[in-house]
Amino acid sequence: MSENKRNGRHGKKQNLFQKAAPVLIGTVVLLLAAVALYGVFQANRGKLSANQTGNAQVKKEQAPSSDTTKDQEEKTAASETTTSKTNDNDEDVEAATKDSKKLRVAKGKNHNEAAKDYAYDPKWVQDVVDGRAVNDGQRLCFLTFDDGVNHEVTPQILDVLKKEQVHATFFVVGNTIGDKTKDILERQISEGNSIGIHSFDHDYDKLYPGRTADSSRIAKEAEDTQAALKKQLGQDFQTTSWRYPGGHMSWHNMVQADDALAAQGLHWVDWNAMSGDAEPASTRPKTADEMVAYQEKSITEYPDVKLRVVLMHDAADKQVTVAALPRIIQFYRDKGFKFGILE
Rank of each mutant, 00 (worst) to 15 (best):
V269I: 14
S250C: 07
I299H: 05
D289H: 09
S282W: 06
K297F: 02
Q319S: 12
M249W: 09
V320S: 01
V269Q: 01
D270H: 04
L261C: 03
M249Q: 14
V255D: 08
V320H: 06
V269S: 06
A315E: 10
L311E: 00
R308Y: 13
A315L: 09
A323I: 05
V305E: 07
S282Y: 14
N253V: 06
V309L: 05
T283V: 12
Q319R: 13
A281T: 14
P303D: 04
G276Q: 04
I299L: 10
W271R: 07
L311N: 04
V305K: 01
V292L: 15
R308W: 14
A281W: 13
H252Y: 12
L307N: 01
A288C: 09
L266C: 09
Q264F: 02
S282A: 15
D258L: 06
W271V: 02
S250L: 09
E290H: 01
E296Q: 14
K297T: 03
T300I: 04
I299G: 01
V310T: 08
K286F: 08
K286T: 14
A273K: 05
T321L: 06
P303F: 09
A260P: 05
A324Y: 02
K297S: 10
D270I: 04
R308V: 03
A273C: 11
Y294F: 15
W251V: 07
L266A: 10
A316K: 13
V322N: 08
Q319M: 09
M249D: 14
V322L: 07
A288Y: 00
A278Q: 12
L266I: 06
W271T: 07
A323P: 00
V309D: 01
D314T: 12
E279I: 00
D270P: 02
L325V: 00
A260S: 14
W251H: 14
Y302K: 09
A273T: 07
E279D: 11
L261N: 00
A288M: 06
D289L: 10
V320T: 15
T287M: 09
H267N: 15
V309E: 01
A273L: 05
L307E: 09
D258H: 03
A262H: 05
H267P: 03
M249E: 15
K286W: 12
M274P: 00
G265E: 08
P280N: 08
P303Q: 07
V320P: 10
D314Y: 10
E279Y: 12
V309S: 07
E301I: 04
